[in-house]
Simulated scan of single mutants.
Amino acid sequence: MHVFIIAGEPSGDALGARLMAALKREVGRPVRFSGVGGPLMAAEGLESQFPMGELTLLGVMEVLPKAAHVLRRVREVAARILETRPDVVVTVDAPAFSFRVGKKIRGHGLCHIHYVAPTVWAWRPRRAKMVAGFLSHLLVLFPFEPPYFEVHGLGTTFVGHSVVEGAADAAEMKAAGQALLARLGIAPDRPVLVVLPGSRSSEVRRLAPVFGETLALLKARLPELAVLVPTVPNVSRLVREMTADWPVTPHILEAAADKLPAMAIGRAALAASGTVALELALTETPMAIAYRTSPLSAMVFRIMAKLRFANLINIMEDRAVVPEFLQDQCTADNLAASIETLMTDEKARALQIEAMQRVMTALGRGGPAPSTRAARAIVEIEAAQRPAVRTA
């Protein structure tokens, strides 16, 4: 079986690598991979057509100067696919690149499966009809997503979210968190707050100051408070700079292996809005969510967005379980009051934790790994479409 697989960013590289490993287990014949990916996919046997970093570096401000180069890469990848005619083409997220390739190969009798749906439930819903025009099938991470695409005739399979894949249970993660506290020299009876100011420099610059002000208020109420700040390499230096004058000296954690243990041992978390909410839900850490962006960006989002909530736990529950403090509501007074409640009020904590457990179960915890479910779906779809593909 020849699988042409494309990923365009580190998260897609991780998803793609797990999927490749699962396909090798699930396909009943030898599997050959080609396409575009990063180091994790290379470790599973992919020789990338060009460095994935060429796509990863595409931020909003970089699109125009690199547009010609990226479009050339789209043509090159599409040409390789049409030349080699793989059994299945799998694109993993990276819609700006993946969908351009998909449009170029449609109508050529190829089975094209995309993994990770565009968030049409949040904004730009017309994209659902657009992708239905060139995809053979769609694999999605959230159980509420299939109807958005099936109404346009696109077969869609919920496979589960990667956050639940291979994760230890809450007790094991808390034990790892206790070991982390011992390594950091933090007494096990001190209240621990996990602070996550974001993975983008713009997020860190906007949130670190108000988070520092929040800690000043919390320190007066919880004088023994310890603060853990898991971060990522691309903003770690900025995080250290922006937290240097915080009233509670934070423990900055750059190792990826420390992230979940730190979350698990936290009594509560103060976090930038984003997918980190699912990791906090996995570790059953009550949280308050904050976000600030530019006034213009906020106005555009309010006009285009369809969501009642920003936090994925609230979206899944369709109710306000996790406190959200966005834009003008993102103040030190609001954040400190919310965090103090989550640190001290057992009823408030229990309500969040129960919702988190439901969401994790809905996303696939306790069942087959999402990568396994995705691989099985791909095998079934490719086999079912094979006669039509071969005669197209």
Rank of each mutant, 00 (worst) to 15 (best):
R183H: 15
N314T: 12
S371P: 11
E254Q: 14
R80I: 01
G102D: 02
F33C: 03
D328K: 07
V248I: 13
A17G: 00
G266K: 01
E9F: 06
T84E: 14
K66S: 00
V88L: 05
T341A: 06
E44H: 07
G185H: 12
E150W: 00
R85G: 01
V116H: 09
D333T: 08
V74P: 00
L15M: 09
F309P: 05
T249F: 04
V164T: 04
P39H: 04
A182E: 09
V90I: 12
I289F: 04
A43C: 07
E279K: 01
A170Q: 08
G38T: 07
P295I: 15
D13K: 11
T283M: 12
Q385V: 11
A290C: 04
R127Y: 10
L215K: 13
L335T: 08
H69I: 13
Q49S: 03
A362S: 10
C330M: 14
L82F: 13
F144I: 11
A182C: 09
A305F: 03
N314F: 08
R206C: 09
A42M: 02
R221Q: 15
D245S: 07
S202F: 14
P65M: 01
K129L: 02
L138D: 14
D169G: 07
H137T: 05
H112W: 11
H161D: 15
T231V: 01
I353Y: 01
D333C: 04
F149G: 07
V195R: 01
L363I: 05
A122C: 13
A179E: 15
A255R: 12
P247N: 02
A182K: 03
K174G: 05
T157R: 13
F309Q: 02
Y291K: 08
A262N: 01
E284T: 14
D93V: 05
G274E: 13
P209I: 03
P51I: 05
A264S: 09
Q49F: 04
M299F: 01
D318Q: 10
E354T: 13
R127I: 11
E44R: 06
W123D: 08
M20A: 11
H2N: 09
F134L: 08
A94I: 04
A168C: 06
R80S: 12
E382W: 15
L46E: 00
G367I: 11
D328Y: 03
C330P: 15
S236N: 11
L335W: 03
A320G: 06
F50T: 00
E150N: 03
P368A: 11
Y115H: 06
Q327F: 06
A362R: 13
V235M: 04
N334F: 02
V164F: 11
V116G: 00
G38S: 13
A168R: 07
E76P: 01
I289Y: 00
P370T: 12
E26M: 12
S98F: 02
S98E: 06
V63P: 01
L326T: 04
R349F: 05
R206N: 03
T372Q: 14
G155S: 03
V248Q: 15
A132K: 15
V92T: 05
